[in-house]
Simulated scan of single mutants.
Amino acid sequence: MSKPWILVSPASRGIGHALTRHLLRTTTAPILATARTDLPGVRSSILNSLSTTSSEEKDAVSKRLHLTHLDVTSEPSLASASAEARRLFPAETHHLRLAFALPGVLRPEKSPADVDYDAALRTLRVNVLGPLMLMKWFGDFLPRKSVEVSLDPLFTSALPTTSESESEDRGGEEGGGKGKASPHATFLLASARVGSTSDNRLGGWYTYRASKSAVISLARTYDLFLRNRSGDKAVSIAYHPGTVRTDLSREYWDRVRPEKLFTPEYAAERMVEIVRTRRVAEHRGRCWDWRGEEVLP
Rank of each mutant, 00 (worst) to 15 (best):
M1S: 12
S2D: 07
K3N: 11
V8N: 10
R13H: 12
G14N: 08
G14M: 06
I15G: 05
I15V: 15
H17G: 03
T20Q: 09
T20N: 11
H22Q: 14
L24R: 02
R25T: 12
R25G: 03
T26W: 08
T26S: 14
T28D: 07
T28P: 02
I31K: 06
L32H: 06
L32V: 04
L47W: 11
L50I: 14
L50R: 08
E56P: 00
E57N: 05
A60F: 07
S62P: 05
R64A: 04
H69T: 15
H69N: 12
D71M: 05
V72N: 05
V72H: 04
S74R: 09
S80I: 02
A81E: 02
E84G: 00
A85R: 01
H94W: 15
H95V: 04
L98E: 13
A99S: 10
L102K: 01
L102I: 00
G104A: 05
V105C: 00
P108A: 13
E109L: 00
K110N: 15
S111G: 08
A113M: 12
A113E: 14
D114S: 09
A120C: 03
L121G: 00
L121D: 13
L121S: 14
T123L: 03
N127M: 06
N127W: 08
V128H: 05
L129S: 11
L129E: 14
G130W: 02
P131N: 06
L134D: 04
M135D: 11
F138N: 01
F138R: 02
F141L: 12
P143A: 00
V147T: 12
V147C: 13
E148S: 13
V149R: 05
P153N: 11
L154E: 12
S157G: 13
L159C: 00
L159R: 15
P160V: 07
P160A: 10
T162A: 11
S165C: 00
E168N: 02
G172D: 13
P183R: 11
P183N: 11
A185F: 07
F187E: 01
L189S: 12
A190H: 11
S191Q: 01
A192Y: 02
G195C: 04
G195F: 04
S196N: 06
S198Y: 12
R201L: 11
G203A: 01
G204H: 04
Y206M: 09
T207E: 08
T207R: 06
S213L: 07
S213I: 08
A214Y: 01
V215H: 06
V215D: 10
L218M: 14
L224V: 08
L224K: 13
F225C: 04
F225H: 14
R227F: 04
K233M: 09
S236T: 06
I237H: 00
Y239N: 07
P241Q: 13
G242A: 06
T243D: 12
L248P: 04
S249K: 00
D254Y: 05
R257S: 12
P258C: 02
T263N: 03
T263K: 01
P264I: 02
E269D: 08
E269Q: 11
M271P: 05
M271G: 01
I274K: 00
V280L: 08
V280T: 09
A281S: 13
E282W: 00
G285N: 07
R286E: 14
D289C: 09
D289V: 08
D289Q: 09
G292F: 07
L296Y: 13
P297Y: 15
